[in-house]
Design a protein around this nucleic acid. Sequence first.
DNA 1: CTGAAAGCGCTTACAG
DNA 2: CTGAAAGCGCTTACAG
Lengths: 328, 328
Amino acid sequence: MKDVAYRAGVALKTVSRVVNGEAGVTPETAGKVLTAIGELGYRRNESARLLRTGRTATIGVVADNCGDPEHAALCRGVEEVAREHGFLLFTGSTDNDPARAERLTLSFCARRVDGLVIVPTQGDHSYLISEIEAGIATVFALRRPAQLTADAALVDERGAARTAVQHLISYGHKRIGYLGGSYEGGGNHGGGVAGYRTRQLLAGYAAAMAAAGLPASEAWAALTPRQLRDGAVTAVLCGSREHTALALRTLAAEQARRIAVVGFGDLDLAEFVTPGVTVVAYDSTAVGRAAAGLLRARLDGYSGPPREVVVPVRLIARGSAEISPALA
Amino acid sequence: MKDVAYRAGVALKTVSRVVNGEAGVTPETAGKVLTAIGELGYRRNESARLLRTGRTATIGVVADNCGDPEHAALCRGVEEVAREHGFLLFTGSTDNDPARAERLTLSFCARRVDGLVIVPTQGDHSYLISEIEAGIATVFALRRPAQLTADAALVDERGAARTAVQHLISYGHKRIGYLGGSYEGGGNHGGGVAGYRTRQLLAGYAAAMAAAGLPASEAWAALTPRQLRDGAVTAVLCGSREHTALALRTLAAEQARRIAVVGFGDLDLAEFVTPGVTVVAYDSTAVGRAAAGLLRARLDGYSGPPREVVVPVRLIARGSAEISPALA
DNA sequence: CTGAAAGCGCTTACAG
DNA sequence: CTGAAAGCGCTTACAG
């Protein structure tokens, strides 16, 4: 920039004006500057500009794993809103490691991102408090953080489980189980990252069973693959794409599957599996957009109490529930 | 930092030394600085530091769509290598729009990223030349750019098609088709972004057919769903996950599928589809890692001729080819 | 072991 | 319409 000013025979400020398209520069002067810029191959350094301006026009996204379809879709949703406002995205993966999450988040903060969209790990997030106080807008996505109450964009897992279970009940199923979380060592699904989703889903599951006056044994709510194979239930709700595949694999040995499978999360080729696999689909991109929307509100000055957006889900019936409960 | 120095009664430089853990500071002095840092809640501004240092420790990733599993996995691979070296990632999606690609790429350059991993769109990339000359290391991924020759990390599409076709031939198939690219309006697969992959796959397809002494009609290489349904071939290679699903949907009307389907790219639940769907799987994360590796070499000073890394693929046979060609 | 000055590339606030 | 000075938050190169 100094070189450009020198070559054009003007002051730094004039170059700045031309580069920013500010009014009040003679076409003649502007021409000289533009020529110098062309000759020197000058490209403005946005980082320097932003240092002076005090903002960075960036948002940091802290996901479990940016390579996972669900989290990738989340990033995409954030990006869609961010780019409308000229923000660039830093993205990074924690791999569910709280230490890595802290390191990643703080390195985004050290770059002075304007905002943060965080998929929380199980660990403590108190290191965020000073950053939020320092003015970094923060929104959580997919899960609520353990200690903090803050803006969050979530998936309606309870509604998903309720819808799925009601669907099964309407086809006459009474013994309905849940396969999710960790099923080894006795079905521990209380803690951990997977635990959040399992807790939400089980709440919806329990509500739907209770509303129909059906009993729900502890064993059903923490089904193991073995119990599934042994016909403990006539229908199963699976807590993740991986668990849906696990259920299908577990039941694949049979000649013809006699247990209804409903999965949380849509899958490629689900429509081609026989008999059908019904799913409750959710749109992570919409969660990302919602998170970015909450963030935008904060950046635009909203400073009221924390808000939550819950993104609805959609049942895609694929004939799975029609498997007669009498078959199992 | 100025405030910290003032409060601790030392010079700026001393604060800098403490913050950076440089040697040559009395424990006593360091203590005063640390105390002041704590009281003031000082957090170093990395952007400012890097402005002075001249580098930014960031890599920009320009993908088609960060929300798409293939591109997300690519980003993930880049991230894995980047984080080992303390680099942060900017990511963004072009949606296959050359104008958006240029805007996104140049905005990364304006932030002075140290390196760029780009999945090229069809457009001209000459705007990159001055950036590369200015020192921004650039590596392409998944596709070669049209005009430039540069470092690239690619998928072995030719090998994939060759392997798939050889596999089908070994089961007696002779009339083998390709479903990919745009199949409407007469099977145009010459241009566009999908065109790159189709060209590579067709090269492998043609090679395998020729090696086996089999004819390969033009129609087979640009199959339409209608031709597929009408039994123009006994086996089909699908050019993408979407085309694999299309083929299955097209053939779903039949009582029992009589055409062997091999897809490029693995799919959820493919193992549960009857009869089987064989796929040639590729690992986009490995492509990302390879791209980051090439980038790293450039950042470490390599300045030789452009290099390419081709990531191998893997056939996952799922009984599809065993569908007798006599059935079709 | 510690510090005062200059500068990274830009903008802001002011003056002419 | 144009410019000289100061400063964003940090580091580098030098001196004591």
